[in-house]
């Protein structure tokens, strides 16, 4: 990457981060959502710690998927509404890079924060302690994949008035592998086996997605902007 493009990417990420930090509610609300939904599961399944420990990897991952998707509907919204996105599309820098900066900053503020908070949820669901590092690592990698997938959906629906539900409809089928690999890794670790195979698959998805998804998102943005 030419240094100029790296600078552009860094500047964009900094811009998104500083804008998001001005409204800390947007960072904490998904965490509160996560906490509330995790609370619902013992109420629905019963408080038996054995049962909860059995379901814990699946519960944490499904909730992470849902909260990541609900947040990603806002991914390009602010920049679309104030016209920044059009400026970025007309700028000499590739739009895919701008889209990637949105995804990266979104991931840092939602996915990584979620991964850092996940030990609390794991403890609430009685997950074995040895699985917690794997849970955090799988969430860091997995939420990047989810943000990238969500970005494609968000780019295609940003210009539509009723984009929210549609976005989930478009992206949920595409996130199935992430869920399977993520739960596979955590479950393997909870049983005391080596989860590195599943984590490698998640890493491969994240690496491939990081290359391809911004291109698709940029194409989607150009359609939404009618360029």
């Amino acid at each position: 990457m030419p240094p100029e493009l790296g600078l552009f990417l860094r500047f964009q990420v900094q811009r998104h981060l500083s804008a998001a930090l001005r409204r800390p509610g947007d960072i904490f609300n998904p965490l509160v959502f996560f906490l509330m939904v995790v609370t619902l599961f013992p109420l629905g399944l019963g408080p038996d710690p054995e049962v909860l420990a059995d379901f814990a990897p699946g519960i944490v991952w499904v909730v992470a998927l849902l909260s990541s998707l609900t947040v990603s509907s806002r991914l390009f919204q602010a920049d679309y509404e104030d016209g920044t996105l059009e400026q970025l599309a007309l700028a000499p820098h590739p739009l895919a890079l701008a889209a990637m900066s949105e995804v990266l900053s979104h991931w840092l503020l939602s996915g990584v924060v979620l991964a850092l908070a996940s030990p609390v949820f794991a403890a609430m669901l009685n997950m074995p302690v040895q699985a917690i590092p794997t849970l955090m690592l799988s969430l860091v990698l997995g939420t990047l994949c989810l943000s990238l997938t969500g970005a494609i959906g968000a780019a295609l629906t940003v210009g539509l008035r009723r984009g929210g539900v549609l976005l989930s409809l478009l992206t949920i089928p595409l996130t199935v592998p992430v869920l399977i690999f993520g739960v596979g890794a955590v479950r393997e670790a909870a049983l005391g086996y080596d989860p590195s195979g599943w984590l490698a698959l998640l890493g491969a998805l994240a690496a491939g997605g990081l290359v391809l998804a911004p291109l698709a998102a940029a194409a989607g943005l150009r359609i939404s902007l009618e360029l």
């Binding site: 494609i152 295609l156 478009l170 089928p173 595409l174 199935v176 592998p177 399977i180 690999f181 596979g184 998805l205 391809l212 698709a216 194409a219 989607g220 359609i223 939404s224």
Partner: peptide, 25 residues
């Protein structure tokens, strides 16, 4: 039509991964 074209191309890249992952699952 353009939006659907982008979405179906993304889906095409994903389908083999989905099938394989469901197989492993």
């Amino acid at each position: 039509a353009k939006a659907c074209a982008v979405l179906s191309l993304v889906g095409t890249v994903n389908i083999p991964i989905i099938y394989k992952s469901v197989d492993w699952w």
